[in-house]
Nucleic acid binder design. Structure first.
Length: 298
DNA sequence: CCAAAAGAGACAGCAACCAT
DNA sequence: ATGGTTGCTGTCTCTTTTGG
């Protein structure tokens, strides 16, 4: 090794001699092959530079962008540069589908880990995949549908079955909680008329806490007025005009996206017909299949 | 029935990768 | 130092199972 370094420095001196100043492409290619012969493997960037006794700029001068990679390709090798292609969606989905077919049921994340499938769970849930495990069935179903992957028909049936059975029991259970909450909000009577929405909010919060609901402090960028058990959001609007109703509608929709149940609480509604119109809209568009939004007026 | 233990999942931090 | 994907690990939470 040490003699190598010495050699290189000798050559460097040689390179500075007139007439040899230009390192030619051919010399580099030759060096590359030499290295492979000598060490029986492909050199890494730095190793090559040292071995050839050149500065990285020389490479760039000859090859331009991604110089070393181009050189490697020219010598018939794959570039060392990391090929960070994300795992294609298809591969991920097929792995999932095959697991399900094999087991005859929807796999848990543990199976995936045990099989050593990639990307790992932690990779899966982050960019660029964003597949959290419980969402896997849904995403798989969507994929299979788009790709028309008939071979996974059984898996789709499994997904269908699980979402209707477990889905139901879950909503039934949470429905009860939701009902309780709705009743609690209904039973709340504001001390008196307030001028500011915020004051109502504080008061309602006290009321709910007294009823034994666990309120979450607003954290992060959450836009909820109140959040209960991470599942139920309460939106409070005082004396809304039309555009505020519209805004609230949008907020409700956003909450639903986060799979929350929402109570929209309207205080001091100026006119009955705007309120009625609002509730009608909510029922029509947001409470389409199952009831997740409750509108209450005080 | 309750309490403890196991299981599943969420999430964040850290590191590896390697040419540029 | 940086880029982007991925893996690994620790900690937290929530749910389900088990033991008594």
């Amino acid at each position: 090794m040490k003699s190598d370094v010495n050699l290189c420095s000798l050559k460097n001196i040689a390179c500075t001699l007139p007439g040899q100043r230009m390192t030619s492409k051919e010399t580099l290619l030759q060096k590359y092959e030499e290295y492979k012969k000598e060490f029986d493997r492909i050199p890494k960037y730095r190793e090559f530079l040292r071995f050839a006794g050149i500065h990285g700029r020389v490479l760039v001068k000859i090859y331009g962008e991604d110089a070393y990679s181009k050189l490697q390709m020219e010598c018939g090798d794959l570039a060392n540069k990391l090929n960070l292609e994300k795992t294609p969606l298809e591969k991920i989905m097929r792995q999932y589908g095959d697991l399900a077919l094999e087991a005859g049921k929807l796999p848990s994340s543990s199976v995936w880990i045990h099989q050593g499938l990639k990307p790992t769970i932690s990779g899966l849930e982050r960019s660029p995949h964003f597949i959290k495990w419980p969402e896997f069935p849904k995403k798989f179903a969507r994929w299979a549908e788009v790709e028309n992957a008939v071979e996974y028909k059984e898996v789709l049936e499994l997904i269908e079955a699980s979402s209707s059975s477990s889905g139901k029991s879950i909503t039934e259970k949470s429905d009860r909680e939701f009902e309780e909450l709705i009743n609690a909000v209904r039973s709340w009577i504001p001390d008196r008329r307030r001028n500011v929405e915020e004051t109502y909010k504080v008061e309602l919060r006290k009321h709910l806490e007294a009823k034994g609901f666990k309120l979450h402090e607003e954290f992060g960028e959450s836009n909820f007025d109140l959040l209960i058990r991470n599942k139920y959001a309460i939106e409070i609007k005082k004396a809304p005009n039309q555009s505020e109703y519209d805004r609230m509608f949008g907020q409700l929709a956003r909450h639903l996206q986060h799979q929350l149940h929402v109570i929209a609480l309207v205080l001091d509604a100026p006119t009955q017909d705007k309120f009625d119109n609002f509730t009608a809209l909510v029922d029509l568009y947001l409470n389409k299949n199952e009831k997740f939004v409750e509108v209450i007026k005080k």
